[in-house]
Design a protein around this nucleic acid. Structure first.
Lengths: 328, 328
DNA sequence: CTGAAAGCGCTTACAG
DNA sequence: CTGAAAGCGCTTACAG
């Protein structure tokens, strides 16, 4: 039914070894004459390479596995684009698996799938797996990099933003605009990213001798609803004069609720977001953002993967910048 | 280096056949006693199944290939979620490949990749491949379904919305709200979807004896910028009293430009969008939308795939509804 | 430049 | 319930 190199070999009157060489472009191992004959026969017969066989015999696949937090699809798309473009250049396929950010089961299965598939590399976006899964990942001996996260430990290679500096600079930016009472909304204290941003925020406030109150920091998981909720908690009469939303959607949630309260942005309340995806440009007023280099994270992640040697992987921060728009 | 079933067989003192059966849960083919021994040994040795070998010998993969238009990431995420959830239930992996909507080269390579990988099914989102590629797809004899598109021909199985009815009902909705001069923005006349929506629009206008002008229909590719451009062309003094944006982003583009012109939405100009993703809820005013069932498209697409027999594939429309919000 | 042969890791009739 | 053996489609030393 399906045509194999054996079929080609027979009709072209050569050995399967030769067919294999020609089709894999092992230059120098065949004459142009046979090559042409083989290629034409392959074409005529409608031959398709069997990837499973190739991967079995070569012991490595041309596949990159990407595990994505299902709830982070907003910026994940940019990271994936960065991965995809680089993968495309090197003729690599990309398997994408979605897993809930806190669904350990799904994460485990996703990881297991890519490992059993012997992918050549694993990229993990915005997820911090359970310790058992991290152990499994290491045991598998497959190069892997964490994207859009960072860790305190140097053990796990990551490419992300320096979240302490993000927190610091966002706050500093607002302070320099004259704000003194600044909230930070929808932040996950249980994540390393969250704690780093809070530390940065607090340091910036302290550096300017500004006091803070615990309730200015509102917990959440970076979602739109968390943003709305944070603003609801701050209330219409809030003493705050600025709020940092810890994601674009969170910031938009804050803004919509603020406006619903009758507050004017930025006059009554300045709003800033962290991420800087397309979102912040399509709302009105457009939101000033700390813009992260998501595309670059994906791109660099792939390039790191290509080195193959995990020992050489070095965690790194991608640059970010502040884009001032109309909400501050 | 990597441990295989042979290693397990040796240390557990059974044949590889038995190991294979136990690990594949071929019940009835082994005693619980051996099973336990085998499983423990596998665990102890840190065994990982080699998917390439399995796929080679079983002649079929547990992978679904999804080819996505890179520019449609907005609603594609919902479709993918629908695919992913169903795939997860059946223990299938999903390979996602992005390809430019009009980048024939990328499309060809993406298709080739999934075919060579002998995936068990191919789902194509919002892309209409070149004829040559469609021929290749068919020759590959792999079940495939087109999602979020429709065709005039019955040859290609698709799951999408009835775009004629979408165009008709959106227009009809606005007319019943009292609007008489309605524009349709950022629509691609060269796509089947585009022409269908336009036909629906025209039919609805005709059914209500309302005249239309050609310039009320503004070309585009469903993007935000196309929406802005369409509104710019209509102008601040436009005679239109309502505009249908042919995607959420396009509608937001229209709205932002209208507001920039000093028009009030919905009083001076009513705006409606087609898609109904999260986008329309985070902008102010929230936009009334024709809401498509993207998740369901993905889900049904996967279920269709699972039947495996392409002859039974029947193109179908997923439901849509109108969600009234504040822009009309 | 070309071919015969071994082997990648697994599954599955077939025989017991 | 278990094992020996064939075979999936390909690559790659090795020998010529």
């Amino acid at each position: 039914m399906t045509v194999t190199i054996k079929d080609i070999a027979e009709t072209a009157n050569v050995s399967i070894a030769t067919v294999s060489r020609v089709l894999a472009d092992k230059e120098g191992f065949y004459s142009e004459k046979t090559a042409t004959k083989v290629r034409q026969t392959a074409e005529k017969l409608g031959y398709r390479k069997n990837t499973a066989a190739v991967e079995l015999v070569t012991q490595r696949s041309q596949v990159i596995g990407v595990i994505v937090s299902a709830t982070k699809t907003n910026f994940a798309n940019d990271i994936i684009a960065g991965i995809q473009d680089e993968a495309f250049k090197h003729n690599l396929s990309v398997i994408i698996l979605y897993a809930g950010e806190s669904d350990v089961d799904q994460q485990h299965r996703a990881l297991q799938t890519v490992i059993e598939r012997s992918v050549m590399g694993i990229l993990i976006l915005a997820i911090r797996p359970a310790d058992a899964d991290i152990a499994m990942l290491r045991a598998a001996n497959i190069p892997h990099v964490f994207l859009s996260t960072s860790f305190d430990s140097q053990q796990l290679p990551f490419i992300g933003s320096d979240d302490f500096r993000i927190g610091y600079q966002a706050t500093d930016f607002l302070i320099k605009k004259g704000h003194k009472k600044i909230g930070i909304a929808a932040i996950d204290r249980h994540s390393y990213i969250g704690t780093q941003r809070i530390l940065g925020f607090q340091r910036a406030m302290a550096d300017h001798d500004l006091p803070t109150k615990p309730e200015w920091i509102q917990d959440g998981k970076f979602t739109y609803d968390d943003g709305v909720e944070a603003m609801t908690t701050y209330g219409a009469q809030t003493e705050l004069d600025a709020v940092i939303g810890t994601s674009d959607l969170a910031a938009i949630g804050v803004m919509n609720q603020a406006v619903a309260f009758g507050l004017s942005v930025p006059d009554d309340l300045a709003i800033m977001s962290i991420d800087g995806t397309q979102m912040v440009k399509i709302v009105r007023p457009q939101i000033t953002s700390v813009t992260q280099s998501f595309y670059k994270m994906g791109n660099r992640g792939m390039k790191m993967m290509l080195q193959r040697d995990m020992d050489k992987f070095e965690s790194q921060y991608t640059p970010f910048r502040i884009d001032e728009r109309d909400s501050t």
